[in-house]
Design a protein around this nucleic acid. Structure first.
Lengths: 132, 132
DNA sequence: AAATGTGGTTACCTCCATGTAACTTGAGCA
DNA sequence: TGCTCAAGTTACATGGAGGTAACCACATTT
């Protein structure tokens, strides 16, 4: 209900929505976000434990990914001022609700991995024949 | 279970599968693939028509994205040697089967866009207070 | 004094996805 | 002679995602 300047209640919703959708899907499609969400799906975790379970991620990328997810309201962060510092991360209601759609996609990949791999070999084989 | 070199039928499926899953999700998450798949979802299209419907994509990226999707067995290509050349693109059975999971994800984003945008504003507001 | 552990930040570098623009092919058409 | 079309290919430039490694603060342990 906040109109900047003159009323624009239902104006060009498609273009802006499309951009936001793309931004969000970019997040879903980035290298670590989905892994983090899935890893937090089982329950809250501390930073180091989360890093251990997300094999290969660096501190820098874990922090960055968590910040992005926190900004988007998928993940909460709770720091306890013990020594050393204790920080817990977990999924918000929003984050939890993403697990379903995500799982649908992962299941699809699992079901079709064979066919995709086969298609790739087949395609690459063709290319060999065409090129040198 | 560890045979290096000899028979390896169901060996370390997790690691390799995980990588392939990631590769495929990377494709899903790239800038144009999903748009192309959705645009082809309604039926086969010629190159230029597909480009027109995928607002903003360049010839180069359209070709590249289509090649990737073709390689993964999602899209078929049929060139007819007319003059000028006529090329039709469409979704394979595999590509069509992806539409469902994709739609699930897009629907989730549509349902939660408001909450995400709000979370972002809120988060950015906090940051302003903390930083200068 | 020095190492350890947690949860970061910062500087720096590299590679790749993407963008822009020019060129190609081959027939038709002016 | 040159322009146009479709469907690309190629060369070149660039931004940003991601990686590496060093640094920090603080208290405890060795």
């Amino acid at each position: 209900m906040d109109n900047t300047g003159t009323e624009r209640t239902t104006e060009l919703p498609l273009l802006e929505d499309c951009m936001i959708t793309r931004q969000i899907l970019d997040r879903v499609g980035d290298k670590w976000s989905m892994l983090i969400v899935v890893n937090l799906g089982a329950g809250q975790l501390r930073f180091k434990e989360l890093q251990r379970r997300s094999s290969g991620i660096s501190q820098r990328m874990l922090t960055q990914t968590l910040r992005h997810l926190e900004r988007d309201g998928m993940v909460w962060r709770k720091a306890t001022p013990t020594v050393p510092l204790t920080v817990e991360y977990g999924l918000t209601t929003l984050g939890l609700s993403l697990l379903g759609p995500l799982q649908t996609l992962v299941d699809w990949v699992d079901s079709n991995r064979g066919e995709i791999v086969e298609a790739r070999s087949s395609y690459d084989g063709q290319q060999e024949n065409i090129q040198g």
